[in-house]
Design a protein around this nucleic acid. Structure first.
Length: 283
DNA sequence: TTTGCGACCTGACAGC
DNA sequence: TGCTGTCAGGTCGCAA
């Protein structure tokens, strides 16, 4: 499920209920997700005030007033939803847990933030806020695609000598952080680059052209509230809408959207992942 | 060192 | 209706 736009959409949805609020009680309903939860996670979270919610790549980071940061990854099927009411009018109500509600944050303002993840590929960890840069999940991440450190020179340097297909290279979180299968397909279609082309053999000008396209695709997706295929929901339970703007992803056999093109969208498998592309428009 | 693939876990869906 | 097989948006670790 969640790539950068979906995670950013969730972060924005959680912010009104969590930022500045105290975690009155953290309810941890199982010992692990992808990895075991950190020791005494519920106790370390209970009573802590969330100073701010940030996003790094596909991770949500909640800075606490205890000098620790809660790291949350939604994996493939994770979702975080807000229920209850921040005004506290119905704080006495205790909604029943649903299947796969693994962690529930009962906020002091009456909001109830639930982490639900059927496939349990998600993760949570606690780290010292000032040690964030050394965290194994964050230390080797590439630059944020919407940030200033991601530019043409960075991408050209990262692709130089690279023998892997450009589709695989763009999925590499060490090169650029936050892209996933859906948006890489969409980016390559807009750039007119065939997904099997070797990254190191693509002209520098074409590599450079990817930078504004990546920014455009991600910005449009965030604006649309992300993409809802099977699992994704925004924090308020609403669907995202960017899936209606897909030009290739999930459109195998459908006609290419380019007016002059007579081809249909093809699907291949690269590194075990589906790739959708137009064989005429992408070279 | 780089690259590709299997594994992790569960639900949805198609086909029989 | 129920069973079986396949697939899925992420990421790590291992083998070649």
């Amino acid at each position: 499920m969640p790539e950068l736009p979906e995670v950013e959409t969730v972060r924005r949805g959680l912010e009104p209920s969590m930022a500045g609020a105290v975690i009155a009680r953290a309810e941890v309903n199982r010992p692990d997700l992808r990895w075991p939860f950190p020791e005494h996670m519920a106790a370390r979270l209970t009573g802590a005030r969330v100073e701010r919610l940030r996003r790094r790549s596909k991770y949500i980071l909640a800075d606490l007033d205890t000098a620790e940061t809660l790291l949350i990854h939604l994996g493939m099927s994770g979702r975080m939803t807000v229920s209850g009411d921040p005004l506290g009018q119905f704080a006495h109500e205790h909604p029943q847990l649903e299947k796969h509600d693994h962690v529930v944050f009962h906020m002091g303002n009456g909001a109830r933030v639930t982490f639900n993840d059927p496939r349990r590929f998600g993760a949570m960890d606690l780290m010292a806020t000032d040690a964030e840069a050394a965290h194994p999940l964050l230390a080797k991440l590439g630059p944020e695609p919407l940030g200033n450190q991601f530019d043409e020179a960075h991408l050209i340097a990262a692709f130089t000598g690279k023998n892997s297909p450009i589709k695989t290279a763009l999925l590499d979180q060490h090169i650029v952080a936050g892209l996933g299968n859906i948006y890489v397909c969409e980016v390559l279609f807009r750039a007119g680059i065939h997904p099997t082309r070797k990254a190191g053999q693509i002209a520098k000008a074409r590599v450079a052209s990817l930078v504004p396209i990546i920014r455009d695709v991600l910005s449009e997706a965030i604006e649309a509230g992300g993409s809802s295929l099977k699992d994704f929901r925004q924090a308020d339970g609403e669907l995202g809408y960017f899936q209606h703007n897909f030009r290739v992803y999930g459109r195998e056999g459908a006609p290419c959207v380019s007016p002059e093109c007579t081809s249909e969208i093809k699907r291949i498998v690269q590194s075990g992942r589906s790739t959708f592309f137009c064989p005429i428009c992408q070279r």
